[in-house]
Computed example of a mutant assay.
Amino acid sequence: MLLRAGILIALASSQVWASLEDDVHALVAHGDLPPAEKMVRAAQARQGGTAEIAAALSWLARGSLAARQTGKADAYAEEARAMAMRVLGMRRVDADPWLPTAIGAAIEVHANVLAARSQTAEAVVYLQEQLKTWGGTSLTERIRKNINLLSLEGKPAPPLEGVNLAALKGNAVVLFFWAHWCPDCKADVPIIASVERRFRAQGLKVIGPTKFYGYVQGGEPAGPDVEKPYIEKIRRQYYAPLAGMPTPLSAVNFQAYGASTTPTLVLIDRTGIVRYYHPGAVTEPELTARVQAALR
């Protein structure tokens, strides 16, 4: 109770600096859905429907889903999506920083609600339809991630630009999708390096796809000619334990594997079948167990 009160006081005292979306996200992260909704409704009463309020509603949808309140989650998701679409009008979705958050989360929550109701096939069809609608936008990776979470394990690994996966059959392969700005990626390096050393003799390979993000340290905008050497510098500084890891540089790979979250780890067995698809950080025991199974 004291922690929650402290959060509310901190949010109230920092309203000048924080965004509504940040404040709602913080409350949802601590399971404080009623005050989060109160904050959203108050902003909605003052401002009407905006892209930021739609993004905040999408956090209520995600929080309700995490609390297994699927009906409320789906209602919030639909409200967020409808509001975002009204705001979008004839603009490009990526022209506004809040719209991809609102629309992407609404799509994600609805698909997860379907899956939670044992309608996984319907969820995949829905996501594939959304992928057609939003192809060529920043939503592509997120929608593909959700398709992959529901359906990629047990299927052949998609092609990887810059690396011939077919030539690696007979080995187990960990794909470690990382970004130069990503602290969780750096934290995973010693875990992945330890597992690679342990199973190297049994045929484990590690590949580290990354891509350009259009900026360097401090968010400074940068073209590929500047960002590429910056990526190489980060790799030397933080990824030295994985010095032998091939690092294909391609946005296509992130789209194919739905790597909207970094790190994303994908484990491919000796026959080229995906056995583990994991957006987010991983523990060493979890990765070790998965690799052992893939090498059998």
Score class of each variant (00 low, 15 high):
A5E: 15
Y126I: 02
S58V: 08
T264Q: 07
R200F: 12
A115T: 02
L152T: 00
K228T: 12
L27A: 01
G135K: 10
R296I: 11
A26S: 11
V226R: 14
E141Y: 06
T264F: 08
Q69E: 14
D94H: 05
K155G: 03
A73E: 07
I147R: 02
R81P: 03
R41K: 13
P248H: 07
M90K: 15
Q44I: 01
V109F: 00
Y239S: 05
W134A: 03
K169E: 11
F254W: 03
L265T: 13
L2A: 14
P156T: 05
R270P: 13
R86G: 07
K186S: 05
L160P: 10
V163P: 09
A201S: 13
T140Y: 10
W181A: 04
W181C: 11
W17P: 07
N112L: 06
P241Y: 10
P221V: 10
P248M: 07
K186A: 11
L165V: 02
P34L: 07
P285H: 00
W134D: 08
Y76M: 01
K132M: 09
L265V: 11
A61E: 04
S58A: 15
G219A: 11
L160S: 10
H25F: 12
S19I: 00
M245P: 02
E153P: 00
R117E: 15
V124E: 08
E108N: 03
I191T: 15
A240N: 05
N148I: 06
T261N: 12
N148M: 06
S151K: 04
V173E: 01
Y276K: 05
G136V: 00
F177L: 03
A106G: 10
A281C: 02
G218A: 00
M1Q: 12
A116N: 13
L88P: 05
L33H: 00
A43T: 09
H25C: 05
V125R: 15
A289Q: 14
M39E: 10
R62G: 10
V16S: 14
K155V: 08
L149H: 00
E122W: 00
G219S: 07
A294H: 03
A55W: 01
A157L: 02
T101E: 13
L8I: 14
N112R: 13
M83E: 06
L2M: 11
T133M: 09
Q47I: 03
Q119K: 08
E141T: 12
S13F: 12
V28M: 06
L27E: 05
Y257V: 04
R46Y: 04
A67D: 15
A36K: 01
